[in-house]
Amino acid sequence: MEEFWQVVEKARESAADPSDAEDVAERTLALLTALPAEKVALLAQPLWDLRARSYRWSLWHAAYLINGGCSDDGFEYFRGWLLTQGRAVFERAVADPDTLADLPAVRRVAAGDEADLECESMYGVVWDAYEVVTGGQEPPAVTGRYPQLGPGWDFEDADEDRRRLPKLAALFDG
């Protein structure tokens, strides 16, 4: 997992604006495609594990508030965006999605100055890089499944939003 985050951090460092998810994803892909296929293949499982770790009801609800709705695919793309924000932001958001309210990009969305926070291309960047490096070979297989989401709460319940995600609810209330 450490190697995956090192590549993401390097991509963020080289981006003119590290909050630009698409630029970070493109730079991550470029860095990955410069690696040998075997090294790229070794990063497939860590990326999958991060995707599975972030598959949480509370984070999905945060994405719903931030993006004004969030389908299954939208949640995947939101988590792709979250990966582009780096390890520290990712870890904080998985532990406590309400910390996303502190991010400038989230505040820009709340102010109507930015579109939805999504990055589909980052979500599968390792598999895309593997296909490029190998000339189209089947990407490496990973093991594991998404965990059960468990009980959640009604996405339209503003009182519950304020209780569970108070900072985000305050930003996106109304």
Rank of each mutant, 00 (worst) to 15 (best):
residue 147 P to E: 08
residue 132 V to C: 03
residue 69 G to T: 07
residue 86 G to I: 04
residue 53 R to L: 06
residue 141 A to D: 04
residue 97 P to A: 15
residue 115 A to L: 02
residue 48 W to I: 05
residue 143 T to C: 07
residue 80 G to M: 07
residue 156 E to W: 12
residue 33 T to Q: 15
residue 111 A to N: 01
residue 92 R to I: 06
residue 70 C to H: 04
residue 98 D to P: 09
residue 21 A to R: 13
residue 46 P to C: 09
residue 21 A to K: 11
residue 66 I to W: 01
residue 96 D to L: 11
residue 12 R to Y: 05
residue 125 V to S: 00
residue 159 D to F: 09
residue 105 A to S: 04
residue 104 P to D: 09
residue 136 G to E: 05
residue 84 T to C: 10
residue 108 R to L: 00
residue 17 D to Q: 06
residue 115 A to F: 04
residue 3 E to T: 15
residue 75 F to M: 02
residue 153 W to L: 11
residue 4 F to A: 13
residue 149 L to V: 12
residue 142 V to C: 04
residue 127 W to R: 07
residue 159 D to C: 08
residue 75 F to G: 02
residue 23 D to C: 10
residue 152 G to S: 13
residue 68 G to N: 06
residue 169 A to K: 14
residue 163 R to A: 14
residue 172 F to R: 03
residue 136 G to S: 07
residue 40 V to M: 13
residue 126 V to W: 01
residue 143 T to S: 15
residue 105 A to Y: 01
residue 143 T to Y: 03
residue 130 Y to F: 10
residue 64 Y to M: 03
residue 134 T to A: 09
residue 41 A to R: 10
residue 137 Q to P: 00
residue 174 G to R: 15
residue 153 W to E: 12
residue 71 S to N: 06
residue 170 A to D: 07
residue 10 K to F: 01
residue 28 T to C: 15
residue 64 Y to K: 02
residue 86 G to M: 07
residue 28 T to L: 14
residue 41 A to L: 07
residue 99 T to F: 10
residue 93 A to D: 05
residue 83 L to P: 01
residue 41 A to E: 08
residue 9 E to R: 12
residue 58 S to M: 13
residue 112 G to S: 03
residue 27 R to E: 09
residue 75 F to L: 04
residue 162 R to Q: 11
residue 45 Q to C: 06
residue 56 R to F: 00
residue 88 A to I: 03
residue 116 D to N: 05
residue 159 D to I: 11
residue 3 E to A: 15
residue 162 R to A: 14
residue 58 S to Q: 11
residue 153 W to G: 10
residue 73 D to I: 03
residue 31 L to W: 12
residue 58 S to K: 14
residue 141 A to E: 08
residue 126 V to Y: 00
residue 21 A to W: 07
residue 88 A to L: 12
residue 69 G to I: 09
residue 95 A to Q: 14
residue 25 A to C: 13
residue 142 V to A: 02
residue 100 L to E: 08
residue 153 W to V: 06
residue 82 L to N: 05
residue 134 T to R: 08
residue 130 Y to Q: 05
residue 131 E to C: 02
residue 84 T to Y: 01
residue 1 M to D: 13
residue 124 G to H: 04
residue 138 E to G: 00
residue 37 A to D: 10
residue 54 S to A: 15
residue 129 A to E: 01
residue 41 A to N: 11
residue 3 E to V: 14
residue 62 A to W: 04
residue 157 D to E: 13
residue 57 W to F: 12
residue 141 A to N: 00
residue 151 P to R: 15
residue 33 T to I: 12
residue 22 E to K: 15
residue 23 D to V: 11
residue 147 P to A: 10
residue 93 A to T: 05
residue 114 E to K: 13
residue 47 L to I: 10
residue 136 G to V: 07
residue 27 R to Q: 15
residue 90 F to M: 04
residue 91 E to R: 15
residue 152 G to H: 11
residue 99 T to C: 14
residue 116 D to L: 01
residue 106 V to F: 03
residue 171 L to A: 10
